[in-house]
Simulated scan of single mutants.
Amino acid sequence: MSRTIAAATSRADVLSALTFAARAFDFSFVTLLVKPVGQDELLGRILVHTTLPSEYIQEYDQNRYLGMCPLVEHLFSSMLPRTWTIDAVERQHAGKLPSDLPRLLRRFGITTTAAMPLHSLEGERFLLRFDGSRPPLELPELNELGMIALHAFDVFEKFRRTERFSVPSPLSARELEVVRWTAQGKTSVEIGQILSLSDHTVNAHMTNAIKKLDCVNRTQLVAKAMRLGLIS
């Protein structure tokens, strides 16, 4: 597996290797997620790659389950791989899970999960998940899968960073300036003073940038701009 990942020539090759690894460990699906921003409650918005059925994602998002899951915040902030079964989660978080969520998971054959927290050089937080209906993982299996995940993500990130620098920025120079200052915590008024613009003009640049990057607010805009390598 390590040789296959090391020999990858594209992000698609890495993702194919992860799909093969999932099957080797008797998992059905593999998913790479980026940490949700602000009040984002849609799984579809934080997916980098997944082999999950589109019907599952649609139903999951229709019910806004992402914002109701008690594990999400902890998983993205953790440094260690974790594994669980839906039965164990139901027992541990009785009364905190939406009643229909376990039924949805079981209907799509997701009863056991292994999750690997990952971090990019820019500080972004990702999560690589393996899902399926296999028995609970033993610690040696989890450790082995964790090493595969780290290696694959390292190679994946190298390709991603290369692609960032080879693709022209979708934002204008002025829009990038506004986003950079926003990332540093400046308000529209403060940015206007720095760039000698009215706050109305600053807000117009911000609105354009939000639309171009398909975001819903400034927080998500800054996070996505960082993820795309448009700002550091």
Rank of each mutant, 00 (worst) to 15 (best):
S2C: 12
R3V: 14
A7Q: 14
S10W: 09
V14N: 02
S16E: 08
L18N: 07
P36Y: 08
Q39M: 06
L42P: 02
L43T: 01
L43V: 09
I46Y: 00
I46G: 03
T50C: 13
I57N: 13
E59L: 15
N63H: 13
R64F: 14
F76R: 02
F76E: 04
L80F: 09
P81L: 13
A88I: 02
R91L: 12
Q92H: 11
H93E: 10
A94G: 02
P102F: 00
L105T: 03
R106Y: 06
R106P: 01
R107I: 04
T113M: 10
A115T: 12
P117K: 06
P117W: 07
L121S: 09
L121H: 13
G123A: 08
L128S: 04
L128F: 00
F130G: 05
P136T: 03
L139M: 11
E141P: 04
L145H: 07
M147W: 13
A149T: 03
K158R: 15
L171W: 10
A173K: 13
R174F: 00
E175R: 14
R180G: 01
T187C: 12
S188W: 11
V189I: 14
V189E: 01
E190Y: 11
Q193M: 14
Q193A: 15
L197N: 14
S198E: 02
T201I: 09
M206Q: 12
K212R: 10
C215M: 07
V216H: 07
Q220M: 04
V222H: 08
K224H: 10
L228R: 07
